[in-house]
């Protein structure tokens, strides 16, 4: 006669839904990009990826052992709060590695990885509590601290990335004659961060995630859509070719950031409308930083800045799980205003 235990309803759970599956899917979606990076950069890519993943895992392991030590707990080799089992650290490490330039020295990779995982995730209480995307935080930290060491060592056009080239004269498409849109799309023969090269492979990863419903497809669509919209407005205003739009969309890790970093559920809003607005804000900031900022690239900064505002997207007086009429009106006005702001800015440049 079995014992009858008391529980509370519901007594069933969705089969096959768990955090590990979600994180593992991101890892699998990154594999084509990773393989392409290794094919293209060889040992440099292998070094960056392995240093990054190993140092993130080590940092997390040591951090939790230290926390246990401070709590006067007995030393155990296997720590329970430690999230290596569910792929989240490996995934962060891989994403971080893929957004680095190929000539980054190993110690810079390590410093960024440790900084990212400790200050981006562990300090806040580990998986599920972090405010910032660890990979973006690590990347921005080393850009700001070790900028001169992060050069691109590929033997094409003197090591300059497309966005780096155009940063000096943002509307002169002639400067871009070395980068064909097709090359940007396939990732052949252009320099850049090791994983951000091939748009097509990133999109394959994104399609896999969308099929497995392991990420929120609205964020990348809103993000990329906004960049395309603003670039299109500028192109029409300046009377330049539509290639300007494609160039903005396909270059500089926009698609990589939109698919693999902006969609990190922990650092994005929780409601469906909130996620659309979040994607829009990311797109706007990215574009503004790209054309007006000192750095050629804006995706990482945009992600980090918007990460800070996630809790205000989720503020209970403003959120709603459905888009209301009022929200539609306000959102349309905001879109028009952002186009206006961009064009006013462009007329001064």
């Amino acid at each position: 006669m079995p014992k009858i235990v008391r529980k509370t309803s519901p007594y069933l759970r969705r089969p096959k839904a768990n955090v590990t599956r979600m994180m593992r899917d991101v890892f699998i979606a990154l594999l084509p990009v990773t393989i392409f990076a290794i094919y293209k950069f060889g040992m440099a890519a292998v070094m960056i990826i392995s240093v990054s993943i190993l140092s993130m895992m080590a940092a997390e392991y040591i951090y939790y052992q230290l926390v246990d030590k401070l709590d006067d707990e007995k030393f155990k080799w296997k720590n329970k709060s430690f999230t290596l089992y569910n792929f989240s650290t490996i995934t962060s490490g891989l994403i971080y590695a893929l957004i680095l330039p190929d000539a980054t020295p190993w110690f810079v990779v390590m410093i960024g990885a440790v900084f990212g995982v400790v200050f981006g995730k562990l300090i806040f209480g580990g998986l599920g509590q972090n405010i910032f995307n660890p990979a973006a935080l690590g990347r921005v930290f080393i850009v700001v601290s070790f900028g001169t060491l992060m050069t691109f060592d590929v033997d094409t056009v003197a090591g300059a990335t497309p966005l780096g080239v155009i940063n000096d004269d943002i509307f002169n498409l002639a400067l871009l004659s070395d980068f064909s849109i097709m090359n940007l799309f396939t990732g052949m023969a252009i320099p850049g961060s090791i994983g951000e090269m091939s748009v097509i492979l990133i999109l394959i990863g994104g399609a896999y995630l969308a099929l497995r419903t392991s990420f929120e497809v609205r964020i990348p669509i809103a993000f990329i859509g906004t960049v395309a919209l603003l670039a299109g407005a500028v192109a029409i205003y300046k009377g330049i070719s539509y290639e300007y739009v494609l160039f903005h969309v396909f270059s500089g890790g926009l698609i990589f950031g939109a698919i693999f970093m902006a969609t990190d559920p922990i650092t994005s809003p929780i409601t469906m409308p909130g996620r659309i607005y979040f994607g829009f804000a990311l797109g706007f900031l990215t574009f503004i930083i790209r054309i007006f900022g000192a750095y050629p690239e804006g995706v990482m900064f945009a992600i980090l800045i918007m990460n800070m505002f996630v809790s205000s997207f989720d503020y209970y007086k403003w959120t709603n799980s459905k888009i209301t009429r009022r929200q539609k009106i306000i959102f349309s006005i905001v879109i028009l205003l952002s186009i206006a702001v961009t064009l006013v800015g462009v007329s001064y440049v």
């Binding site: 599920g128 929780i270 409601t271």
Partner: peptide, 27 residues
């Protein structure tokens, strides 16, 4: 009697999307 292992909330938002009364259970 199945013991389900609870993990950290990853804010995936499935509960918000699925709620028939359009609430935000996780919040």
């Amino acid at each position: 009697d199945v013991e389900y292992k609870e993990e950290q909330c990853v804010r995936c938002g499935s509960c918000v999307y699925s709620c028939p009364t359009h609430l935000q259970p996780v919040q």
